[in-house]
Design a protein around this nucleic acid. Structure first.
Lengths: 217, 217
DNA sequence: ACTATTTTTTAGGCTCGTCTAAATAATATA
DNA sequence: TATATTATTTAGACGAGCCTAAAAAATAGT
């Protein structure tokens, strides 16, 4: 049996290892979990003992196949619940994250199966992130930071990196949702801010915001 | 903040005090929670310190208004989730209890509000039990054990006492669901078993089963 | 009313997940 | 390369929720 806390650590480790292709370091993990390094070390030992991680003292961890499968099943549940909250219950897409963090730990394969069916077997969640299938297969589309594009480029928003509610509210307000077309008009040299066209409207996005919007390549 | 475990104890105490109109005793509570008396004592002290219970050593506990309100909010969530599982996801009514036990602890007033709306503000759950409103008001219909009726009586099933899955499956099979009409044909003297008519069909119900079916008075 | 039995509480210990402080290993710098 | 800095681990402690065994209170039986 795996505990709720173990699931959360494993999920964080999965995300961190997807982000930077190397070992996940103790301090990174501690920061992601809002705990201290000592706590992360303890949990790493537990998860390694259960074969969810491979761990070498002082050299960080790698997630095992078993660990990845478990993390992906939690991520699958999280994203299905987010889809449910938006699609069936009418939540705004910036309101769903915290609730989904709770719902993702409900243990009932039947529930997830039926939820998936109710939602029409969605492939992506409301933030544009792909939903792993029941076997943990996940198709990650080619994603690139909006900030990396050159003036003149046109692409589609596919996802938002951060799940900070303030950011999501802002993006919602300017209509920057997954599936929406975006044009890069120009880039301000001195601060990296970006002039873009979303629909008919022109916006200036700070460098930080442009780095959090992921678009098709 | 109240923990998941505290919520579960409080719910059990609420149900026990509804059942027998007196103080809830430590051993009763321990049995209901599948723990030992010592653990129940520990938790009683914690809940009493938080003013959810009034407690006098060696003389059991009474739930306070604050405790009742909290218990009822958990019960409300449980019954709304059960309704959702059956009505929206197509669960059988004997499959929902365990999942609802998990879902009832999700913290999000907005979620419950939206769920309630999705379900059309139901008044009773799939077992016929009343759903408390958002203020903890609960209308308990007059319920009586089927076993207490005399031959010739006709009533409606309103609920099932036990939430044992075996029993629910059996009742489901013979069509004994809340809202269904039932006729008492006769009672067998020596074992108290009951001959009844459900729809067109005749069944013999053991005394135990007849004591678990609640009907209108 | 006094003893035997049952119920409840207390005492002390265990695991989980957390912490701080101290020790140790790895890395960066001079 | 020797030292200073940073990262990580270890040691020891704590609260929550659980346990067993023993003590204490309440209740039942004679």
């Amino acid at each position: 049996m795996i505990s709720l806390t173990e699931e959360n650590y494993l999920k964080a480790i999965y995300h961190l290892s997807e982000a930077g292709k190397k070992e996940v370091l103790t301090n990174e993990l501690a920061e992601a979990m809002h705990t201290k390094a000592a706590s992360a070390t303890d949990m790493i030992k537990k998860l390694a003992a259960k074969d969810y991680l491979s761990y070498e003292k002082y050299h960080g961890v790698n997630i095992t196949q078993q660990g990845r499968t478990l993390a992906l099943s939690v991520i699958r549940k999280h994203r299905l619940w987010e889809t449910f909250l938006v699609q069936t219950l009418g939540f705004k897409w910036d309101e769903v994250h915290e609730v989904a963090e709770q719902l993702e730990h409900i243990q009932s394969p039947l529930l997830i199966e039926k939820l998936d069916k109710l939602l029409g077997f969605p492939k992506v969640d409301p933030h544009g992130d792909p939903i792993p299938d029941i076997n943990g297969k996940i198709k990650s589309l080619q994603k690139v930071m909006l900030a990396s594009l050159k003036p003149g480029a046109t692409t589609l928003i596919v996802a938002v990196k951060d799940s900070d509610s303030q950011l999501l509210k802002y993006l919602d307000k300017i209509g920057a949702r997954p599936g929406i077309k975006i044009n890069v008009v120009g880039i301000e040299e001195y601060d990296g801010s970006m002039e873009v066209l979303i629909g008919e409207q022109k916006f200036f996005l700070s460098k930080e915001v442009a780095e959090n919007i992921l678009v098709t390549n």
